[in-house]
Simulated assay, not measured.
Amino acid sequence: MTGRVFGQGPSAYDAAASWWSERLSVLKYPEAYSGLCHTALNGHLLSRVVDIGTGGGDLARAAIGACPSIETLHLVDTSARMLEAAQAALRSVDGPDVTVEQTDMELLQPCRSFDIALAGHVIEHASDPVLALRQLAGLVRPGGVLLLVVSRPHICQFPIWLRWRHRWFSETQMRRMTKEAMLGAVDCMPLAAGVPARTSRGYLIAVP
């Protein structure tokens, strides 16, 4: 979705944009993202947010619901149609000013200005996931955080892999890669029951 892709490129996500969020809704990902954001972001005063690989904007919507303090939201994706879908979905949400940028994550300049970087199922598609973590951290101010949703090992990954050619990482692997990226403390959080719980984990990572 963003970064130099390991699996499918932007055209595959352009083709999926018309049904992406509906499919995630059927699988209960929006509810899982909402629960994750309320758990992970409780007590955080966030103003500036960047969502890398936003897709249909589902993780961004969950963050807005959990943090009324968010004032600006910058959506990034390689797929123009995904960005259009995310903008359309967020028009119905009261809250932050929304801007969009169609680009690869690796082309973003480190700005260290956002309070948090969101990335739902992004680093699994990067050719170098440690570098992807560093690139995400480069967007966030010192003392900010990353909130990631990452594919975890489970037999359910194989039919997903047939379509998207992604990777998946255990908690041990994520902690090792985070350490290699020279980031801070890591909190690993399960997602709600059902498909999200089987396929994904949430990670809240401190940015030094």
Rank of each mutant, 00 (worst) to 15 (best):
C188F: 13
E101K: 06
D104P: 01
E22A: 14
P196G: 04
T72S: 12
Q157D: 02
F6N: 12
S200L: 13
M174S: 01
S34A: 14
V130M: 06
S18I: 10
E71G: 12
Y33W: 13
T172K: 15
W168N: 08
L73Y: 01
I123M: 13
G144Y: 00
A206G: 10
P153Q: 06
L131D: 10
G194H: 02
L139K: 12
T103K: 04
A17H: 05
L146F: 10
E22F: 09
L45E: 14
A206R: 10
P129Y: 00
S21G: 14
D187R: 13
L147T: 10
M1A: 12
Q135E: 09
R48E: 05
I116L: 14
E84A: 09
A16V: 06
V76C: 07
A185Y: 07
C156Y: 13
A66D: 00
L90T: 02
D187H: 11
C111L: 12
M189E: 14
D97G: 15
S34P: 07
G7T: 11
F114S: 05
V207T: 02
D97E: 15
I160Q: 09
V130I: 11
G202L: 10
D97V: 15
G9Y: 03
L46M: 08
H154L: 09
P159L: 03
V149Q: 07
V5C: 10
L90H: 02
C37V: 06
R175L: 12
A193F: 11
D97A: 15
V195S: 02
G143E: 11
